[in-house]
Simulated scan of single mutants.
Amino acid sequence: MKIGSLEIIGLPLFLAPMEDVTDPPFRKICRELGADVVVTEFISSEGLIRDVAGSLKKLEFSADERPVGIQIFGNNVEAMINAARVAASAAPDFIDLNFGCPVRKIVNKGGGAALLQDLPLLLQITGAVVKSVEVPVTVKTRLGWDERSKPIVDLALKLQDAGIAALTIHGRTRAQLYGGKADWTLIGEVKNHPSIHIPIIGNGDVTDGPSAKAMLDQTGVDGIMIGRASVGNPWIFREVHHYLATGNTLPSPGMDERLRVCRQHLETSVAWKGEITALLEMRRHYSHYFSGLPNFKPFRMRLMTTVSLGEVNGILDDIARQYCP
């Protein structure tokens, strides 16, 4: 699979961009555990061109995260052009345009999936950004706005004509948010359209090896992007690769490994963003890091309420004493 000059052997697994999740500490862990390509949290174009510190910090990545894409969002052509140039100055492997985020605070500002209601503007932004930077430009979007509007096949052809290097399709409409079941049918129609020659990456409801194989068998996609199923479960990339290669399911990681990776994630997050922010954002990961453990609720409640790194490390020590042989 090629994205511009970036070539990836085999079927690549992508870590999806997720706000307050896909920061450098988590991206690095996912790369170590089998993710082939990672993408930053989505970054506001307006924040980048106004030198907002939080937006600029999201551009940071290390060499061992590569290949890495920087994702930006917005609905103003000039702002997106300028933001793409700022992003390109960080030398990512590609820049991704977010036309799929369904959350209200993004859509209400005209960004993300809101552009699916204004396809001419979406295409204008895409073409302008492609022409403004030297790095490859990709797009992530959804099937359409709602059940009555799913223009993804025609849109994919027009995006390809606009010069994008790859397209990721989430198999839901904006109206679905993250509910219901992802529909991979139209992803397959795009991938197998005789006029499509750019890589197509499938996204939505891939939660393990069997579901990844099902998507691949149904659609023939060139790559698979995994989002929410990776939260607190970076091993999913290792497991999917193993299943696709062998047809067998790997055992779940043992407690020693769960604790080691959780501690690594916690420590690197604190170093990167500070103790309070890191502790608050880590809360979304804890239940998944320790899923399936009997009688874990008291530990989970303690992890979800403490705002002290020392206390969290003490709780992790208690978990080790309780569950490690």
Rank of each mutant, 00 (worst) to 15 (best):
I70G: 10
A63I: 11
K131F: 04
D64A: 14
N108R: 08
T141S: 15
D118W: 12
S55A: 15
D118A: 13
R104W: 05
G111A: 07
Q117Y: 01
P92E: 06
K109L: 08
E65R: 11
R104P: 07
S55T: 07
V129E: 08
E65A: 12
K131Y: 05
Q124T: 15
L121A: 09
A114G: 00
P136R: 01
N82V: 08
G144W: 09
P67N: 09
F99N: 01
P120N: 14
V107M: 06
A128C: 11
Q124N: 15
T126F: 13
A90V: 04
I72V: 15
I70Y: 04
R85I: 08
F99L: 13
S132C: 12
T141K: 12
E78G: 02
K140A: 13
K105N: 03
P92I: 02
A91V: 03
V130G: 05
L119E: 13
P102W: 02
A88M: 02
A63C: 05
Q71R: 08
R66Q: 10
S55V: 03
A113Y: 01
G100S: 11
T126W: 11
A90N: 03
P136G: 08
P67A: 08
G69W: 08
K105E: 02
N75G: 12
Q71S: 11
T141G: 13
K57L: 13
S132M: 11
I125E: 07
D118C: 13
V86I: 14
D93C: 10
R142P: 12
C101D: 02
I81E: 07
I95Y: 00
G127P: 10
V137T: 07
E60R: 15
K58D: 04
R142I: 14
V103E: 00
Q124H: 15
G110K: 01
T138E: 11
A90M: 09
V139Y: 10
P67C: 10
P102I: 08
D118L: 14
R142E: 13
F61S: 00
L115D: 07
I81M: 05
S132K: 06
E134M: 09
G54Y: 01
K105Q: 06
N82L: 15
A90I: 00
R142N: 14
T138D: 11
R104S: 12
P120E: 13
G112I: 00
V130R: 00
G111E: 01
L97V: 03
K105Y: 08
V137M: 04
G74K: 08
Q71T: 02
A128F: 05
D93M: 10
G69M: 09
V135T: 03
I125S: 06
T138C: 14
V86M: 07
G69F: 04
V77G: 05
A90L: 06
S132Q: 09
G144V: 13
A63W: 08
